[in-house]
Simulated assay, not measured.
Amino acid sequence: MKKQEQQDRDYMAAALSLARRGLGRVAPNPAVGCIIVDSQGHVAGRGWTQPGGRPHAETIALNQAGDRARGGCAYVTLEPCAHHGQTPPCVESLISSGIKRVVVATTDPDRRVNGKGLDILRQAGIEVQSGVLKEAADEVNAGFFLKVQQNRPLVTAKIASTLDGKIALANGKSQWITGAESRARGHALRAVHDAILTGIGTVLADDPALTCRLPGLEERSPIRVVLDRELRLPAECQLAQTAAEIPTWVMTACEEREKKQKLADLGIEVINVAVGGDGKLFLPEVMKSLAQRGITRLLTEGGGKLNASLIRSSLLDRLVWFRASSLIGEDGVSAVGLLGLEKLEHMPRFTKIFDGVAGADCWEEYRITY
């Protein structure tokens, strides 16, 4: 590998590390990282998208670099924006900075950009290299891309089970199957997602808080979303009692004004969606509604019925599975409910992308293939 090519990859890898800092905090915008290297080959500035999506990574990095950006190179994990929004286009900032070269990992599918940013930079006489560590960059912003292209968020299901795939005893008791280390990793997952989804059954059984309780990351708790067709959410549950501090949404088909007002008085946003042919909330519409509200990355922590519904609807993208070294047996509650398969070739297939150990437990992360 040539020296320049290796240098491009090394700096882009560092920029991607910066981009990941924004995951769970920048919706509805993408999480972007940027590094400015001056003409002497030294890092002059670095930045990543800030909470709420502003300022952009390029703006922060260029401000740090100042005059040292002139004649240098910018490494950006996503094509710089080319449209006027709340701030001027990043391509204009790059051009006015005197940057000589821009290296981009992947293009922005937003129709207002989608190659236009790269074209503007080239027309200004700036050398442009694209596609460096593209696969890694696409993974960082998979949620943003899905929102733009399919009007839905990236959906990751988190499961904590025994070795035989049980998430609770027959009597419903489930706390705690996995250990403290697995639970900490689960909280870290919450911190990098925009919202967390569960069903009313899980709320009634476990009364979860669905917050991030890792020291120092408490402020990164995601928006809590509950699927509650009939508005059975108790006013005394943790989600309702903390809705004034942490945004809480309830997706429902219920039209009873009194029930809606009771939840609204607690600070809960009630969102009506359609019911599907199975009598349950129509998950594609749920996802569309969440995307329209800016959600790009959704973590689900529900029961077997929700997990199965996501798979049957072809809406599950990632699966993070924590397994304790224990067994419950046939009478336990399964992590995945009825899929209705009649042929083995119809089984959903998964590709393992990460794995590891968490205390006495093991965990794996999968990408699903339909």
Rank of each mutant, 00 (worst) to 15 (best):
K3H: 11
D8T: 00
S17D: 14
G22Q: 04
A27V: 02
P30F: 09
A31M: 01
I35A: 07
I35D: 03
I36N: 00
T49Q: 10
P51H: 09
H56G: 14
E58V: 07
L62G: 01
R68Q: 11
L78G: 09
G85W: 06
I95C: 03
S96G: 00
R111C: 04
R111A: 11
N114Q: 11
L121Y: 05
Q129Y: 11
E135Y: 02
D138H: 09
V148S: 03
V148N: 10
N151Y: 01
A160K: 04
T162E: 05
G165I: 05
G165A: 13
G172T: 06
E181P: 01
R183E: 11
D207Y: 13
L210W: 11
P222C: 14
P222W: 14
P234K: 08
W249E: 03
T252F: 09
K259P: 05
K260D: 01
L266H: 13
L266V: 04
I268D: 03
K280V: 03
E285I: 05
E285V: 07
V286C: 15
G302V: 02
L310H: 07
R318Q: 06
R318Y: 04
L327V: 12
S334D: 11
G337S: 14
L341P: 07
M347R: 13
F350A: 15
V357C: 04
A360E: 15
D361F: 03
T369K: 12
